[in-house]
Amino acid sequence: MKNCLVVDNSKMIRRVAGRILSELKFNTDEAENGQEALSQCRTKMPDVVLVDWNMPVMDGLTFVKALRQEPNGQKPIVLFCTAERDVVKIAQALEAGADEYIMKPFDSDIIASKFQQAGLLAA
């Protein structure tokens, strides 16, 4: 089973995402902000990261830039999962190293579809 790290300061979102990911046969770990996620990645690099943009301590964009500089930091497939829908912000996320982008609110179909596009699930 692949590991997915869910990074979001909302406990509710972490729980909902975790439930969907478990249905898609992923193990999930959780972090409340970018700083906590970064230290988890240094200990155990996940296969996938689902990360929010706006979080206290360290935001998602800063986290993704830092993650991609880490040894083995290119390995995880990174998907932003955020309420930000501005095209400029989406472009910034991709520029920083995100592979896909999910706009909240989301449902299980959207997560499955994005995971397929990222090559994490068979089409």
Binding site: V87, I90, A91, L94, E100, Y101, I102, M103, F106, D109, I110, S113, K114, Q117
Partner: peptide
């Protein structure tokens, strides 16, 4: 978001 890659969307 169903089937359309984000790069195609933007």
């Amino acid at each position: 978001q169903r089937g359309l890659p984000i790069r195609d969307l933007i």
